[in-house]
Amino acid sequence: MTAVDVRLDHLAIATRFAAGPEHWPVAPRFNPVSRWYERLHVADDHEVWLLTWLPGQSTDLHDHGGSAGAFHVFAGSLTEDTVTTTAGGSPHLTGRELGEGAGRRFSTRHIHRITNRSSRPAVSIHVYGPALTTMTRYRLGRDGLEVRTVEKAGVQW
């Protein structure tokens, strides 16, 4: 069996951070208006974020500006929706629930939406490499994805 190089495996990094919450520089907080997030760590080739989600809180459909990454559900459950197009069909969202301890890697071209559809708060760890510089937010129209906004790190978040 080949050892995983955790410097390059975003999910391994997220899982490692999830295993040591006592080392997080900040404790999770919950905001009743919108999801809460705080950067836990930054390195030359990646960054790590802590996010909290009350029931019903979600992101818009978005990408990560060319960064690859992963997320790990530390507590609760989250649903990830991705855009799927069937042969000859219209694009639609396909959801996948990820429970506590589950994780997901994604590529530099990944577009998704994450929602807490459960009745319990959720906490997740997200890793992006390289660090986020932009995020494009989308709307799913009849003809496919339409760009709504492009946000810049340090300006809009």
Rank of each mutant, 00 (worst) to 15 (best):
R7K: 12
R7W: 07
A12F: 09
A12W: 05
A14H: 09
T15C: 08
R16T: 14
F17N: 00
P21F: 04
P21R: 05
E22I: 04
E22Y: 06
E22H: 13
E22S: 13
A27Y: 10
R29F: 00
F30I: 06
F30Q: 09
N31E: 12
N31D: 15
N31Y: 07
P32R: 00
V33K: 09
V33C: 00
V33D: 14
R35Y: 12
R35I: 12
E38A: 08
R39V: 01
R39M: 09
V42F: 11
A43Q: 11
A43F: 13
A43V: 07
D45I: 11
H46P: 03
E47M: 10
V48I: 13
V48D: 08
V48Q: 03
L51K: 10
L51Q: 04
T52L: 00
P55L: 01
P55H: 07
P55R: 01
Q57Y: 10
Q57A: 12
S58F: 04
S58L: 11
T59S: 15
T59D: 15
D60E: 14
L61T: 04
H64W: 12
H64K: 09
G66S: 05
G66Q: 01
S67G: 05
A68G: 15
G69C: 01
F71D: 07
F71R: 04
H72Y: 15
H72Q: 12
V73I: 00
F74M: 04
F74H: 08
A75I: 00
G76W: 00
L78K: 05
T79V: 13
T79H: 02
E80S: 06
E80N: 04
E80G: 05
D81Y: 15
D81E: 15
